[in-house]
Amino acid sequence: MNLVESLRAHRLLAIVRGKDPAAALRTVRTLAEEGIAAIEVSLTTADALTVIKQARTELGPGALLGAGTVRSAADATRAIDAGASYLVTPALVDGLESCGIPVLMGALTPSEIEIAIARGAVAIKLFPGALGGPGYLRALRDPFPEVPFVPVGGVDAQAARDYLDRGAVAVGVGSPLVGDAADGGDLDQLRARAVTFREVAAGETP
């Protein structure tokens, strides 16, 4: 799987994190039904590995289903065994170079970006994105024109548009999209938010 090209095509990565495993699985299922192609299940989700395993069974082998908040090589191994097809880290993590699947590694500063690339990251999770905002991404594009950036953290619909306009290959969106659905919240509201973010990713006005 070419994760970067997939993210570039879909421009949206949904981040599912919740306290209720059954609700988290329903959230993944609903996002997929609403056309959100790339979905990450955070390992901080209750019984996250089971959620990933069940979601993989439901969505099939080709689904862009990843594991997030991967903080160690041991986390990576467990996530891969559960069916994750890519990994997302919140920060620089050692030991993922030979994990066999793409890694979207968290970094914020230019020095961290260089380290992440040296550690085999296929793209940079710019986190926390809200700290610098879209203007910071634009500044990073000059010294790192070839680096695929995916801003994450505080990305609402307007910020998503701004980041995409400034060269992000995709945006990672958690609570502004998922809301409380992964804790048992309203799935109809989740569907409505999914439509909004899908329109933003398609270049329509939020």
Rank of each mutant, 00 (worst) to 15 (best):
L104Q: 04
T77N: 08
G83L: 12
S111W: 05
S85W: 02
A84N: 00
F144S: 13
A37N: 08
P151V: 12
T45C: 00
G68K: 10
P110W: 11
A139T: 15
V70D: 02
I80F: 03
S42C: 12
P110L: 10
V70A: 03
S111P: 01
G135Q: 11
I113G: 03
R78P: 02
L59K: 05
A79Q: 05
L59H: 08
V152F: 06
E58Q: 15
R56Q: 03
E34R: 15
P145A: 05
G83P: 04
T45I: 03
D81M: 09
A116F: 09
G120Y: 09
L96C: 10
I52G: 07
V147P: 14
I124G: 00
L64S: 00
V93D: 04
P151R: 11
R138C: 08
E114M: 15
A63G: 00
P151C: 14
L96H: 12
Y86A: 05
Y136G: 03
L49T: 12
G60V: 01
L108D: 05
S111C: 04
A38K: 01
P128Y: 02
I80K: 14
L96M: 10
P110R: 12
P151S: 11
L96A: 09
V103Q: 15
D47A: 14
G100A: 00
G68S: 12
G100T: 01
D75T: 08
G129T: 14
S42W: 05
V51C: 07
A139W: 08
A74G: 05
R141F: 06
A55P: 08
D94M: 00
A73G: 06
A123M: 10
I113V: 15
G83Y: 04
P128E: 01
V41K: 11
A118N: 10
A67D: 06
G133D: 12
T89R: 07
I117E: 12
F144Y: 15
A73D: 06
I39P: 11
A118P: 01
G120I: 13
E58H: 07
A118H: 09
A46R: 12
G129L: 13
A91P: 02
L92Y: 03
S42I: 03
S85A: 13
D142F: 13
L49G: 13
V70P: 04
G135A: 15
I52K: 04
L65K: 06
Y136N: 06
G60S: 02
E34P: 07
L64Q: 05
S85E: 07
G35S: 10
A55F: 12
A32Q: 04
E40K: 09
A84L: 01
S42V: 13
G135K: 15
A130F: 11
R78W: 02
T50M: 02
L137C: 05
D94F: 00
A74C: 02
E114G: 04
G133W: 10
E112Y: 04
A37D: 12
P102Y: 08
V122G: 10
P61F: 07
V150T: 01
G95V: 09
K53P: 01
E33I: 10
A38S: 14
C99Q: 13
A79V: 06
P110A: 11
T57V: 11
E33P: 08
G83C: 12
L131S: 15
